[in-house]
Design a protein around this nucleic acid. Structure first.
Length: 188
DNA sequence: TCGCCGATGTTCT
DNA sequence: GAACATCGGCGAT
């Protein structure tokens, strides 16, 4: 059992996105503390699931606490954690984390030395952790995944509009860890 | 430091 | 044929 986090993934994505900040995500022992997330839901025009189930987004309509991995702009991978009950098409995009485990492995994969650039952005994070379509649909409570709880005391959150979308661009569904140097971009 | 732009493949109209 | 939940390099400030 590697899902050691007290998070109810059957809750709505907005709630899960907030609770994931501060949680440690490892894949084959490589990763770090999640510092930035975004929430998506089927009722949300910016979501891949807005128009219904397709082969690409099928895992978003599957059971919660599973991974949804898709190709972005033809050359990057991005990962979501599926939320709510099966069939709801909701999830949380993992946008950035603070590297803590397997730093040299991440540097090899990224071809970058600077710690602040290893996992700052969904595409970079996926490259650093070796995330590809092979993880799409896999459960988060079994290897290669490992989720470890963050600090006991609540963390201070930043809130802002999601990045890189054109629809529902005003919704404040992006969350970050206040004071982190590892965000993909600043909050205003 | 900021902003523009091309790369590149899948999905959907 | 267009859009796209991105990134890195380039040139201008």
């Amino acid at each position: 059992m590697t899902l050691l986090v007290d998070i109810d993934f059957s809750a709505e994505s907005l709630l899960v996105a907030r609770q994931l900040i501060g949680v440690t995500l490892l894949i084959d022992g490589v990763g770090g503390r999640i510092v930035e997330t975004e929430a998506y839901d089927q009722a949300d025009p910016a979501s891949h699931t807005y128009a219904g189930k397709t082969p690409r987004n099928a895992s978003m309509f599957g059971p919660p606490a599973h991974a949804y991995v898709y190709r972005s702009y033809g050359m990057h991978w991005c990962m979501n954690f599926v939320c709510r009950e099966a069939g709801h098409g909701a999830g949380v995009l993992i946008r950035a984390l603070e590297p803590t485990h397997g730093l040299e492995r991440m540097r090899e994969r990224r071809g970058v030395e600077k710690l602040e650039l290893l996992c700052a952005g969904p595409g970079r994070l996926a490259q650093a952790l070796g995330i590809t379509r092979s993880l799409d649909g896999l459960p988060l409570d079994a290897p290669p995944f490992e989720l470890l709880p963050g600090p006991a005391e609540p963390v201070e959150l930043l809130v802002g509009p999601r990045i890189g979308i054109t629809k529902a661009a005003h919704e404040l569904w992006r969350f970050g860890l206040k004071g982190s140097k590892f965000l993909s971009r600043g909050f205003n």
